[in-house]
Amino acid sequence: MENAVVREAVLVIRDLCKSFGTNHVLNHFNLELYKGENLVVLGKSGSGKSVLIKCIIGLMKPEVGSITIFGEDVLALEHEDLDRLRMKIGFLFQSNALYDSMTVRENLVFPLRRHWLKKDMSRVKTDELVLEALHNVGLEHTVDMMPIELSGGMRKRIALARTLILKPEIILYDEPTTGLDPITGKEIIQLMIDIQKKYQTSSVIISHDLLCVSMAADRVVMLIDGVCYATGTYADLRKSIDPKVKLFFD
């Protein structure tokens, strides 16, 4: 066992519980994300996938449990420390969440300027980073356009570019292909894979899109009834005989 590879967990979730009234969305949920891994959390609508990802980034507070990112307990962090940690984490929102009143450039510059450590960055350096992020998603020409002028797929790419601009080590994707046609969806998934390879990021991808799961997942976690019901590769889970798992793939 001397040559065994020790995988470094960048995100560890233990016994996470989150309820809305009597609806126990997450019920002692456990998860690990390893460095360089694309982990897909698969579950049906309303199963708590988005709640999970919002708890990870600190937008929601769970009642019980712990979330550790790069060894830091997210739930115990003060606001400024949480902001510092968030610099290492990108979040692609389901609705893209581009600021309507800002141009693409301003949307991309916003997180750079807002994070305390980068607020004194020079204009030249900022422009460089904006163009690099836009180059990664193939949309350099949209730099001075408004979000309203872009198609759904382009908006998703710009949102991804905004996520990338801080060079995050972990990227959280909330339903990245929702609302996109299959071709554009496939392009976005390919983009996510390319980005992961280029920047060696680790990703948590929330999805119920099997195409996304099959293309992007190194490992799949099935979130059913608030718990990590099954885990494995896409191929493993596809072969499962468990009726609840089979239901997703049939």
Binding site: L59, Q94, A97
Partner: peptide
């Protein structure tokens, strides 16, 4: 901004 998650995006962006 609230329903399109822009407020959440701001929070995630250190604001």
């Amino acid at each position: 901004m609230k329903v399109t998650e822009q407020i959440d995006a701001m929070e995630v962006s250190g604001t």
